[in-house]
Computed example of a mutant assay.
Amino acid sequence: MKTFITILLAVLSLTAFSSKYEETMKTNITKMYQVSGSAELQLLANKFERIGNAEPDEWLPHYYAAYCFIRSTFFDEMNADAKHAQLDKAQELVDKLMKTNSNESEVHALQALLYQLRITDMSKGAKYSMKASAAINTAEKLNANNPRVYYLRGSNTFHTPSFFGGGAEKAKPDLEKAAKMFKNTQQNDGLMPSWGKVHNSQLLSQCNEIAN
C-alpha cells in the first residue's frame, strides 16, 4: 500500500510539474509573438534560457530563446553590427541544439532563418544563401511536411538575383506550397513552432504583384 501511494504521489507530482512547464512556455510564446521591441524580446530570450537550464531534457526553451534573439533584429531599425551581435547570441543556442537535437527539422529551419538574416550586405549574400539552402535541405529530409522548409526556400530564392537563378517567379511555387501547408497544418501542440506564415503571405503577394 505504501509503495502504491509513493508511486501515485510521484505521478501526480510529475504531472503537476509538466503542466507548470507547459503553462509557462505557452505564456512566454504568446508574449513573444505580441511584443514588437528588441529589448522586450531579449528579456523573453533570457526567460526561455532559464527555463531551458532548469529543463535540460527539453529542447524548445533554448529554441525559443534563439528565436527571440533572431526576432529582435526585426525591430528598432538595428544597424548591421547590432543585428549580427543578436544573431551571434542566437547562434550559440542553435549550436547547442545541433549537438542534442540534430534530428529535429525545426532546428535546421531555424538555422536557415538565422543564415538568411546574416545577409546584411551584398558581400555576404553568396556565402549565407548557400548555407541557408543547405540547412533548408536538411530540414526537408528530416520532415518534408514542415511548412517552414518551403517558406524559407521561397524566401531564399525570392531574394536571390535572377541572374543567379532566383527571383519572384522561381520563388512562387515554394511560397504557394508553404501557404497551403500553413493553412492545412493543424497545431495540436501549442508549444511547437508556428512562425513564417505571415511573411510567407507577404512574399507571395509580392510575387503576384510582380507577375501582374
Rank of each mutant, 00 (worst) to 15 (best):
N103C: 06
N53V: 00
T138F: 09
Q202K: 15
K124Q: 14
L142Q: 03
S18L: 12
H159L: 10
H108V: 10
S38N: 07
S201Q: 15
V11T: 03
W59F: 15
A85W: 04
A45R: 00
L142T: 01
L113D: 02
G166K: 11
E104C: 11
R71L: 15
V149M: 05
S155T: 04
S38R: 12
L44Y: 00
A144V: 09
E55T: 05
A66R: 00
Y128P: 01
L93W: 06
S105L: 14
A66P: 02
G165R: 09
A82K: 13
G37F: 04
E106P: 08
L110W: 08
L8E: 09
Q86D: 13
D174C: 07
E55N: 15
A16K: 12
A132W: 01
F17S: 14
D121L: 08
T24Y: 06
G165N: 12
T138H: 05
I5C: 04
A211C: 08
A109M: 13
N101H: 15
A179W: 06
A65V: 01
L110C: 02
Y67C: 09
V11E: 05
H62N: 00
A85Q: 03
F4S: 03
N146E: 09
K89T: 02
Y21T: 02
D57E: 15
A16E: 05
S36D: 05
K2F: 12
K20L: 12
K96G: 14
F48Y: 06
K183V: 04
E77K: 14
M122L: 13
G167V: 04
N146M: 13
Y115W: 11
L110I: 02
K172W: 04
K177Y: 06
L43I: 04
M25K: 01
M122K: 14
M78A: 06
K83H: 05
R148W: 05
L12Y: 03
L113Y: 07
L41E: 00
F69Y: 00
